[in-house]
Simulated assay, not measured.
Amino acid sequence: MTGNDTAAGILGVGIIGAGPVTQAIHLPALARLGDLFAVRHIMDADLAVAESVASRVGATHGSNVAALLADPEVDVVAICSPHQFHAEQVIAACRAGKKAVLCEKPFAMDAAEAEQISAVSKETGVPIIVGAMHTFDPGWLAAEANWGELPETAHTIRSSIVLPPNARFEDFATEVITRPATDSPDYTDPEVIRNALQGGIMGLAIHDLPLVRRFVPDFQDLEILQAHHVRPFGYVVSLRAGNRTVELRAVMSSTWKPEWTFEAISDEADLRVDFTPSYVQAGSAVARITRGGASSSHGPFGHNGYEGEWRELARLARGTAEPLSTENLINDLVFALAIAEASAAAATAEPAGAGA
């Protein structure tokens, strides 16, 4: 960081991975936070993409992670690369002495990698945020502050998502360069169904699973009641953990109106949170709590969860916020992996008596 930047309180940002999420979500969010951040370095495996995206913000570009981590202008690192690289890159950023790290979900491939990240974060003192943006949404935070005993009394938790394909929203936000290629899947292949269902849980449901876990802290006895893949991209999963029922539903279709809701229901009260679609940059969620026949509404607020997570990253980098519990991040990951693996197994299991 330069002396002038230090005086202005501006944190230099390095971004690893310049794909659609960086282009359509993080750069617009950072553009609204110019009093906190300046993008200094963008890295992508495709040098042409890195150069093009960096030119939008006047940043250095490159195709080498080590060069970005060695850049003295980079104070905080955002890791937006393919998820199989997340663990090694989070660890490298911590060891490079950066002030804080934001990693897109999932931040590790398994619990062992997550434990290693946790150990390195504690060893180096570098705080980590995982990009489950809904946990930083001011609408959700208002719900937490006002829901009373609902986490102890809720019997049903539901996440319901209806979205058009990401490209539609990305086009609203920016001109995206090089989207990943997609193939026509063979839905007669059980392995395709398994991978699609796991991908849906770890790519979409994972945004809400940390919210679910606020109501299901103990998930050791998790039981899948039903699990189905919804074409072309979606899922219907019902599960039970203790005395709580959790319903996860998602469908992606260009003909449906976007809707993203989270609900928690008890005999005495219920919560409904309506989130805005991520790419639209349309502000916060709105939370409604109903108790004893009376309802209270919270929101909308002035920013969404993506901007919220960057604001929290600034506080962590400056030492004005308590680091998030890495144990909690590990448990969130283990919870998501358990649901993804059990759902995929249930969806592809042969019916009883098959082949007899």
Rank of each mutant, 00 (worst) to 15 (best):
P300V: 04
H228Y: 13
T153W: 14
D274A: 11
E73V: 07
P277G: 01
L33W: 07
A344M: 01
V126K: 10
T135G: 01
G302D: 03
A66F: 00
G14F: 15
D267H: 01
L33A: 10
E263W: 10
G62Y: 11
T2V: 09
R244L: 11
F107D: 00
L197G: 05
A344Q: 01
E263L: 11
S343L: 02
A132C: 03
T156F: 15
I224F: 02
V65W: 01
T22P: 03
E307K: 08
N166T: 15
N328E: 07
A54H: 06
R56E: 08
V236Q: 14
T255P: 00
N166Q: 15
P164N: 13
P180Q: 08
L27H: 04
F136M: 05
D218M: 14
E73R: 14
S118D: 13
W310R: 03
V39H: 06
D270P: 04
K99E: 07
F275R: 11
I129M: 08
G199K: 04
G292H: 09
E259N: 08
Y279R: 00
Q84R: 08
A24S: 12
N243L: 06
D171Q: 00
R32D: 11
P300A: 09
A87C: 13
A346I: 15
H207G: 13
F107K: 15
F215P: 04
G58E: 11
S159I: 10
A346P: 12
T2Q: 11
E312H: 04
S52L: 04
A340C: 07
T255W: 12
S238M: 04
V236G: 09
Q198R: 10
P180G: 11
I224L: 08
K98M: 04
G292C: 12
G62P: 06
S278V: 11
D183Q: 03
N4L: 10
H303S: 02
A294C: 07
T326S: 01
D270C: 09
P106Y: 03
F107H: 13
T153F: 14
N304F: 03
V53D: 13
L30I: 14
E149F: 05
S63Y: 12
A67W: 00
A282D: 01
Q116R: 06
G242S: 10
R244W: 07
E247P: 14
A342M: 12
